[in-house]
């Protein structure tokens, strides 16, 4: 089995006329925690959405287990998406369903299991993210951290080999954010899940990263390990890890 789970080659993406990703290439290896980092608006989430087939690129290829998802038809793409888990920045929980039903949703659709087994699996997945007691709550009754964990429970419902996580720490207090980082490390250890995580939280990056890809204005400016990133010769990367501001930071992204 190949060591590479996801391979992105020369990915170019636009929003309208605006170039968002410019010839991005990278690979995600099995079992690693791969971080996509960069400043706000640099294209991190866009890259993640392309890697999961939620957006179609202008050009380039994205291979998942060797299959190019940009060449797949709708049914093939849906089949591929069943093999991955996605946890969204705003959790993406269906607000009209309970937390338990949200986690059960992919199990009911594809799990081919009895209701009793599905119920047990929902409890198991919620237990893994520390939310066993929230099964019957509605998403609107959850705090931000609980929503993220419930979203993660749904993402791992079908035991996918890889989970894409958009901004796990955003909007969370440091204790909750750290707890979520621990959870990611535990899930990798327990279930062998590969994680692709979009973030710009330095503490989280230092805690969980195996390898890092850094984007700046849609371009890859660094790929490597955490220690390589912290001693990188790339000025923008060093600036990021030293948490140094631009001279006029607010004007940079205008």
């Amino acid at each position: 089995m190949s060591d590479t789970l996801v391979e992105v080659s020369d990915l170019v993406a636009h929003y309208g006329d605006t170039l968002v990703l410019d010839r991005v290439s990278c690979e995600v290896r099995r079992g690693e925690i791969f971080l996509i980092i960069g400043g706000s608006g640099c294209g991190k989430t866009t890259l993640l959405k392309h890697m999961t087939g939620l957006l179609s690129p202008t050009s380039g290829a994205i291979r998942f287990s060797g299959r190019d998802i940009t060449q797949m038809d709708e049914d093939q793409l849906a089949e591929m998406q069943r093999e991955i888990g996605i946890a969204f920045q705003s959790s993406g929980l269906i607000n009209s369903l309970t937390v338990g039903d949200n986690v059960a949703l992919p199990l009911r659709e594809y799990g081919q299991a009895s209701e009793r087994l599905i119920d047990a699996m929902v409890r198991l997945k919620l237990s893994l993210v520390g939310m066993a007691s929230a099964q019957h709550l509605m998403p609107s009754e959850l705090s931000g951290g609980m929503r993220k964990r419930a979203g993660l429970a749904r993402a791992i419902a079908l035991d996918p080999p890889i989970v894409f996580f958009d901004e796990p720490s955003a909007g969370l207090d440091p204790i909750m954010a750290s707890g979520l980082d621990d959870l990611i490390l535990d899930l990798r250890k327990l279930l062998g899940i590969t994680f692709v995580i979009v973030t710009h939280e330095l503490d989280s990056i230092r805690k969980v990263a195996d390898r890092i890809l850094m984007l700046d204005r849609g371009n890859v400016i660094f790929i490597g390990t955490l220690s390589e990133a912290e001693t990188s010769s790339v000025e923008r990367t060093r600036q990021f890890f030293e948490r140094r501001a631009d001279e006029f930071i607010t004007q940079r992204n205008v």
């Binding site: 959405k49 999961t52 996605i86 969204f88 920045q89 993406g92 269906i94 607000n95």
Partner: peptide, 17 residues
């Protein structure tokens, strides 16, 4: 609202039409 709150993306991300 579902689109704004990424629920539509979540459905598509689960391979649901």
């Amino acid at each position: 609202t579902m689109k704004v709150q990424e629920e539509i993306d979540a459905l598509r991300g689960m391979g649901l039409n």
